[in-house]
Amino acid sequence: MVTEPEWRHVRRDGATALVLAGILFLTGCSSEPAEDGGGQGRPTPKPAATGTLEELAKKAGCDPNVQTDAAELRQANCKTSGRRYVLTTFATDRGQREWINEAKDYGGSYLVGRRWVAVGEPDVVAALRGRLGGTVETASPHHSGTSGGGGSEDGHSGHHTS
């Protein structure tokens, strides 16, 4: 019998639903892709910041309001220059990628670094990228309940067209 990683139990207990509800609240179900440079001759962004939730929040200019403090992930609501976003750190790379893949079913813009994600409106994510580095990923909402929404860590848009 194969045992599942501990973080999967958090998902079953509703933590993911709370995180995704926060994302929907902040993004307003926005499905517009974020600017990612798209080969327009822009310089390569600085490497993604690293650190704890509090360290990343400080670099972003945020006093974090921690909402989830679990072994698998920590999440805080942040506000910088009057704009709100969610900052989440992860215990593992795999946990982060699975969270992102599931969250993308709800659309939105994501700034992704090593074991952290910032979620907000496209302009907020773009501004945070200047402070934290990282890669922008975007996705359109999917209502089929399947994961695997688009986007990639190299900055390509996950905006789908039919």
Rank of each mutant, 00 (worst) to 15 (best):
M1Q: 10
T3R: 13
E4C: 06
P5C: 08
H9L: 14
R12A: 13
D13T: 06
D13Q: 15
D13H: 15
G14A: 05
G14S: 07
A15H: 15
A21S: 14
I23D: 10
S30Q: 08
S31C: 06
E32M: 05
A34K: 00
A34I: 02
D36C: 12
G37C: 08
Q40T: 07
R42M: 12
P43R: 08
P45M: 06
A49Q: 01
G51R: 08
L53W: 07
E55A: 15
A57T: 14
K58Q: 12
K58M: 03
T68D: 06
D69C: 02
E72S: 15
R74C: 01
Q75N: 10
T80Y: 05
G82C: 05
Y85V: 02
Y85E: 01
V86Y: 00
V86C: 00
F90G: 04
A91M: 06
D93R: 09
D93T: 08
R94E: 14
R97W: 01
W99F: 13
I100E: 11
A103C: 12
K104L: 06
G107S: 02
S109Q: 02
G113M: 01
R114N: 13
W116A: 05
V119D: 01
P122M: 05
L128T: 04
R129D: 08
R131N: 13
E137R: 14
E137S: 13
P141A: 09
H142E: 13
S144Y: 05
G149R: 10
G150L: 07
G151W: 02
S157N: 07
S157M: 07
